[in-house]
């Protein structure tokens, strides 16, 4: 009986303590942030969205290779000799036209792994977090700033130059091959001549040696 009363007393006491805490919070301050009116201040290094400073990109493909989910797509075309693409702000020379630099943010898992290998620090996370879309394809961001016509032109140019280079290389190879052939022939000739001479001289040497 006494036990039962004690138990109920403890129950009531713990309930009242709990109610005391909740009523204190009732009159306390709330922690809610009224979202569209007030916005949370994200730290500078918040990882919310990938951004590429395309002017600094040298098309090295390191980020795409570092991505665990393969959400970065890069196509490059080597620049032709008549165009100087300039240098990045970090001083690396640019050697490629970036015909395509797409990031599928629907696939991205914000792991930050692509940021670190970049030699020119041109790919990084920004703290912009409101970019929902109604259509999934809108989440594929195109960073390349080349016009389609330009892309075609560049591609053609590059192809031409590549063909030219190939041709040159082939010519060189041919020349080299010819030269080598000539040399071989000459060498053969010389060797034959030598041989002819040697045939006569050798025995005399031997003879000398023997004697």
């Amino acid at each position: 009986m006494v036990e039962a009363f004690k138990n109920s007393w403890i129950t009531f006491k713990s309930i009242f303590i709990g109610m005391g805490i909740t009523i204190r919070h009732f009159f306390g301050k709330s922690v809610t942030l009224q979202y569209p009116d007030e916005r949370p201040v994200l730290p500078n290094n918040a990882r919310a969205k990938l951004y590429v400073n395309i002017d600094d990109c040298i098309g090295c493909n390191l980020c795409a290779r570092a991505c665990p989910v393969n959400c970065i797509y890069i196509d490059t075309v080597p620049s032709t000799s008549d165009v100087d693409l300039g240098k990045t702000s970090t001083g690396n020379p640019k050697r490629f036209w970036l015909t395509r630099f797409d990031i599928d943010m629907a696939k991205c898992m914000y792991c930050d792994l692509c940021v670190h290998p970049c030699p020119t620090n041109c790919i990084y996370m920004v703290s912009e977090y409101e970019y929902s879309e109604f259509n999934r394809t809108n989440l594929i961001y195109h960073f390349s700033n080349l016009e389609p016509a330009m892309v075609a032109e560049v591609k053609e140019k590059a192809a031409n130059e590549a063909a030219e280079k190939q041709r040159q290389r082939e010519e060189m190879m041919r020349k080299k091959a010819e030269e080598a052939k000539m040399k071989q022939i000459e060498a053969k000739k010389q060797a034959e001549e030598k041989n002819d001479g040697e045939k006569g001289s050798e025995p005399s040497k031997k003879e000398n040696g023997d004697s």
Binding site: H25, F26, T32, Q34
Partner: peptide, 13 residues
């Protein structure tokens, strides 16, 4: 609202 205030929230606003 009571739930909100007790839980340090605001409830419907």
């Amino acid at each position: 609202k009571v739930a909100g205030f007790i839980q340090d929230r605001l409830g419907p606003m």
